[in-house]
Amino acid sequence: MPSLSPGATAYTIETIYRQEHGWLKAWLQRKLGTSNHAADLAHDTFVRLLAAPGSEPIREPRAFLRTVAHGLLVNHWRRQDLERAWIETLAQLPPALAPSPEERAMALQTLQLVDAMLRRINPKARAAFLLSQLDGLTYAAIAAQLKVSERMVKRYMAQAMFECLLLEQA
Score class of each variant (00 low, 15 high):
Met1Glu: 12
Pro2Glu: 14
Leu4Thr: 05
Pro6Ile: 11
Pro6Ser: 14
Ala10Pro: 01
Tyr11Ala: 03
Thr12Leu: 08
Ile13Glu: 05
Glu14Ile: 07
Thr15Leu: 07
Thr15His: 08
Ile16Tyr: 04
Tyr17Lys: 04
Arg18Glu: 09
Arg18Ile: 10
His21Thr: 12
Gly22Trp: 08
Lys25Cys: 15
Lys25Ser: 14
Leu28Asp: 01
Leu28Arg: 00
Gln29Cys: 07
Arg30Phe: 14
Thr34Val: 14
Ser35Lys: 06
Ser35Pro: 04
Asn36Tyr: 15
His37Lys: 15
His37Asn: 14
His37Asp: 15
Ala39Gly: 10
Asp40Ala: 12
Leu41Ile: 03
Leu41Val: 03
Leu41Glu: 00
Leu41Lys: 00
His43Ile: 09
Asp44Glu: 13
Thr45Lys: 00
Thr45Leu: 03
Leu49Phe: 11
Leu49Asn: 00
Leu50Glu: 06
Ala52Lys: 06
Pro53Tyr: 08
Gly54Tyr: 12
Ser55Arg: 14
Glu56Ser: 10
Ile58Met: 03
Glu60Met: 14
Pro61Lys: 02
Arg62Val: 06
Ala63Arg: 10
Phe64His: 11
Phe64Gly: 03
Val68Asp: 00
Leu73Cys: 04
Asn75Gln: 13
Trp77Asn: 01
Leu82Ile: 11
Glu83Ile: 13
Arg84Gln: 09
Trp86Asn: 03
Trp86Lys: 02
Ile87Arg: 12
Thr89Gln: 15
Thr89Arg: 15
Thr89Ala: 15
Leu90Cys: 04
Leu90Thr: 03
Leu93Arg: 08
Pro95Val: 13
Leu97Asn: 10
Pro99Gly: 08
Ser100Asn: 03
Glu102Met: 07
Glu103Asp: 12
Arg104His: 09
Ala105Asn: 04
Met106Lys: 11
Ala107Thr: 13
Leu108Asp: 00
Gln109Trp: 11
Thr110Cys: 06
Thr110Phe: 10
Leu111Pro: 01
Leu111Ser: 05
Gln112Gly: 09
Leu113Ile: 06
Leu113Thr: 07
Val114Asp: 03
Asp115Ile: 05
Met117Thr: 10
Leu118Gln: 02
Leu118Tyr: 04
Arg119Asp: 14
Asn122Val: 06
Lys124Gly: 04
Lys124Thr: 06
Ala127Tyr: 02
Phe129Ser: 03
Phe129Gln: 02
Leu130Asn: 03
Leu130Thr: 04
Leu131Thr: 01
Leu131Arg: 00
Ser132His: 14
Gln133Ile: 06
Gly136Phe: 05
Leu137Asn: 04
Thr138Tyr: 03
Tyr139Arg: 07
Tyr139Asn: 09
Tyr139Leu: 08
Ala140Met: 05
Ile142Ser: 03
Ala143Tyr: 04
Ser149Tyr: 06
Ser149Lys: 02
Val153Asp: 00
Lys154Arg: 14
Lys154Asn: 09
Arg155Met: 11
Tyr156Ala: 01
Met157Pro: 02
Met157Cys: 06
Met157Tyr: 10
Ala158Val: 10
Ala160Pro: 00
Gln169Asp: 11
Gln169Lys: 12
Gln169Cys: 09
Ala170Asn: 09
Ala170Tyr: 09
